[in-house]
Simulated assay, not measured.
Amino acid sequence: MLGRLHVLTDARPGRDAVAVARAALAAGAPLFQVRVEDGVHDRDFLDFAAEVRALCRVYGATCLINDRVDIALAVQADGVHLGAFDLPVSVARRLLGSSAIIGATSRDAAGARAALVDGADYVGVGPCYHTSTKDGLPDPIGPAGLELAAHVGLPAIAIGGVTLERVPELLEAGAYGVAVVGAVNSADDPGVATKALLKALS
């Protein structure tokens, strides 16, 4: 079953992403998505992904790799999350197999329907709000934009500027779950933040 809380790693310089992952997983985070900064060497990405994957195994959580099917294969992750310019879902499915979890990115209903046709297991919809954890993103779509993409037959995971306080309106708009970066990685206590998000999603 697809977890309703997706925690993304924040591997920007000066942050201990592995320690945050360990705390969030211990608090019950059901799914971790491994994301790194642009320009990170493949070997560093591989080593980091393998470390998070190992933690996910310890805690029985799902591990997805952002963008990179090859890294997912190398660390035996549970699947991938693909952006608009990554490999097509159909190609990733052929490489990873029928049991892999594959998410696709969308901003609107048309994109969500395309992800459904291509065989994605869920669609990440956003950015829902302004966020500082990733550069170069388009304008936020808000809950209203999310609602348009959330009713095409795929679980919709809201992403982009998601906070604990915003979870209720995202669920009301049709989100199946949420993906967070700062709400956990920048929290004083990532474990406490994770538990609060899980409670809001339950």
Rank of each mutant, 00 (worst) to 15 (best):
G142K: 05
V180K: 02
T194D: 03
G83W: 07
T133G: 05
L116T: 04
A158N: 01
E172Y: 14
V80S: 03
I102W: 01
A100S: 12
V167T: 04
T194V: 00
V152G: 15
S186D: 14
L201E: 10
E172S: 15
L96C: 09
A173R: 10
G153A: 12
G177H: 12
C128G: 01
V184S: 08
Y176T: 05
D121C: 06
L116A: 09
V117E: 13
L137V: 13
L154R: 04
D86R: 01
E147I: 01
E165R: 15
G124Q: 10
P190R: 02
V91H: 13
A110C: 08
A179R: 03
L164C: 00
A173Q: 09
Y122M: 11
L146V: 08
S99D: 13
A196M: 07
A109R: 15
L198C: 11
F85W: 09
A92T: 00
R94M: 10
S98P: 08
E172F: 05
T194W: 05
G124M: 10
D121K: 06
A144H: 11
V89P: 03
L148W: 14
S99L: 12
P168S: 07
V152D: 12
K195V: 09
G177E: 14
A149L: 11
A115G: 13
L87V: 05
L198S: 13
G126H: 12
I159V: 10
V125F: 12
K134A: 02
E169A: 06
G142I: 06
I101Q: 04
A187I: 07
D189E: 06
L146G: 07
S132G: 14
L171D: 13
D118T: 03
G191Q: 04
A187K: 04
L146D: 02
L137H: 05
H130G: 11
L201T: 12
V125M: 07
G145C: 03
